[in-house]
């Protein structure tokens, strides 16, 4: 890990004002290597509470790896991850830094919701069982409390009539909404969403984007890897374009999507708008 003088102090955002509130998610000089391949290099991001942060970029540019490093699904090679002012994956004891223990990592992860491209629902569980499992296992909720919470969340994503269905009986869009409810059931501080509509048939994309828009309106902090440029334009507060594992350009969607400065950003946007038709 790189130097960190006071690891339990909130990181100061570049754009931090005098109020003293740090970003909800801060990524500092993140680097991730897979063997000799450098998948992510010197990436720093600040996501403020309630912000929707879109990550765009070509296939293989390192978008998923950035998200996976934030909850240590992939431990970073170097750099710092901070969520709500707490360092993820590294703990300070007696003035020294050490890697977090499994139990400490689980506590951090419980606050970070993640939704995957391929849903990854537990196929032997019903929709309701998918949602109650983690709150019971990790948050120690009683079964009846967990069920109450799960029904409320499934209702919220429009699946109030699908509690007892197994994933294989649900459409892709419905499965993805269950997966969102499952992540929300942990009451996360931030949601990481990795191309959550890419595996869906076109006619099912809107129902999932709709749920994401509602979440954004309700003030959820979100990091969203997406190829849905309309979503990024309408919903995101900030857009970052990554290429070759590096941040090329970052700013509000009005700047990045409408008037990109970098050649690579322009080329990417042209390509994606052409394929979107």
């Amino acid at each position: 890990m790189t130097s960190a003088t006071d690891p339990n102090k909130k990181p100061v955002a570049a754009s931090d004002d005098a109020s003293g509130a740090g970003p909800m998610v801060a990524v500092r000089n993140l680097r991730k290597e897979f063997g000799s391949l450098v998948a992510v290099e010197d990436v720093s991001l600040d996501v403020n509470a309630g912000e929707v942060f879109a990550i765009i970029g070509a296939s293989g540019s390192g978008k998923s790896t950035i998200l996976k490093c934030i909850n240590f699904l992939e431990p970073p090679t170097a750099g710092e991850i901070w969520v709500d002012g707490r360092r993820v994956g590294v703990v300070e004891t007696g003035g020294r830094l050490r890697p977090a223990r499994a139990s400490e990592l689980r506590r951090s992860r419980a606050d970070i919701g993640m939704v995957f491209q391929s849903f990854n629902l537990f196929p032997h569980f019903t929709a309701l069982q998918n949602v109650i499992e983690a709150p019971m296992a990790v948050r120690g909720l009683s079964r009846s409390d967990a069920i109450g919470l799960a029904k409320e969340l499934l209702d919220r994503v429009g699946l109030g009539d699908k509690f007892d269905e197994h994933p294989r009986r649900l459409s892709g869009g419905q499965q993805q909404r269950v997966a969102i409810a499952r992540a929300l059931a942990m009451r996360p501080k931030v949601m990481l969403m990795d191309e959550v509509t890419s595996a869906l048939d076109p006619e099912l994309v809107e129902e999932v984007l709709g749920v994401m828009k509602n979440l954004a309106r309700d003030g959820m902090t979100m990091l969203v890897v997406t190829h849905e440029m309309a979503f990024a334009r309408d919903v995101a507060d900030s857009v970052v374009f990554v290429d070759g594992g590096r941040v090329v350009e970052q700013g509000p969607p009005s700047e990045i999507l409408r008037a990109p400065q970098e050649v690579r950003t322009k080329a990417f946007l042209q390509r994606i708008l052409r394929t979107d038709g």
């Binding site: 139990s103 419980a110 995957f116 849903f119 990854n120 196929p123 499992e133 296992a137 990790v138 942990m186």
Partner: peptide, 27 residues
Amino acid sequence: VDPGQRHAATALGIPYWRSLRRIYLPQ
């Protein structure tokens, strides 16, 4: 078992032995 199952269980913070018993073994 689809590695996505492990990703999901890990991301939710479910302990290993519980994931094994409740999620991986039944599959």
